[in-house]
Design a protein around this nucleic acid. Sequence first.
DNA 1: CCTACCGATCGGTAGG
DNA 2: CCTACCGATCGGTAGG
Lengths: 214, 214
Amino acid sequence: MADRREVNDALNAERGGSSTRVTMIEVATRLFGERGYPGTSIRDIAEIVGILPGSLYAHIGNKEEMLLEIVSSGIDRFLEVVGASSREADPRERLKAMIRAHLSVVAANPQSAQVVFHQWRYLSEANQLLVRKKRRAYERLFRDVIIDGAVDGTLETELDLRIAVLVVLGSLNWSAEWLVAGSNVDDGTAEAFSNVILDGLAAAKFAKETRRRG
Amino acid sequence: MADRREVNDALNAERGGSSTRVTMIEVATRLFGERGYPGTSIRDIAEIVGILPGSLYAHIGNKEEMLLEIVSSGIDRFLEVVGASSREADPRERLKAMIRAHLSVVAANPQSAQVVFHQWRYLSEANQLLVRKKRRAYERLFRDVIIDGAVDGTLETELDLRIAVLVVLGSLNWSAEWLVAGSNVDDGTAEAFSNVILDGLAAAKFAKETRRRG
DNA sequence: CCTACCGATCGGTAGG
DNA sequence: CCTACCGATCGGTAGG
């Protein structure tokens, strides 16, 4: 009966943090993503974790602390993975790699992504400030690649930079609504996504043929 | 002191519904959009409307009924306005008109749009079914114009239709996060948006020059 | 639309 | 991590 707890305790010794705490955060991530922060009660989380509601407070200070941790580490994940994809020199290829990376992070845990994208509103003003700083850094990755592309001529120069970033990030973030959890983003999806973003919907056959030839 | 109520009562006579009910829905729209459905209490709404919590139930059956009304009429608005823009014959121009129309509906009431996009999750299964039907009809408008464009050659033929629709609608829906309420969508924003969606971010100078000449 | 109220649930705590 | 509990707030109702 207590086997799950025993396994947890074993893992517990190996790492620094309590494994129950890790489980709590995982469960909270799922529920905050599915039902939203105000729609999830401490009791909901406790029940799934398998402890009594009050016992949660042996591992966390309060409910908002869990939200902050999920949102903050969630953005960090995007910054790490997409940041690593933004080293590529050629802006066009860099943007493609960033799109694929962003989609892979969302697909790895869409519920976490949903919390990152929507539940930060329920943080206190002070905590929202922390989060906003990270979000701005993330947006900068995309702004930079578009600027670099405009400079070297591989990306469009005449477009409205702000709108371009909003369209790209908007369509990427919306993927959390339809990407199935755990599905490795297959080449097809990322490729199709990049095609729409990079080349748009309008037929531009001459440009493509020209590019293909040389 | 009771002047607001008197004015409401006067308006009340002119239309069918109670004006208090209309005010309630407006307030609920704002709060559901800003704080989410579970994060908004009946008491929050009542306080702003200026009546006591229990008095709300003279005008509605329950809290979810308000949500359903807001979501349902919200989607109807998109269907009407964007549907009217989808009569244009040329697919490229039609899509541009639809993008502009969608953005204008969001800008007219971003909070309502937020409720439409995110709060439908809190409806009962039965009510979600109603909503999903309308959402599908809305997505069909966009799928159709992309298909029509592929057929007549003005839009790209090789792209993944599903992904294309998701990218377009994703970026459009995300606009509710950044569009300021009441701002008429200026030509610049809608034009820039259409440019990114239609032509993409990749420089395609040859195609553009070719199109301009012919 | 108010008065007066209901049972249920909420986030959180003291003490072990 | 449990026992036992707190005050506050929740959606909603009967009767006027």
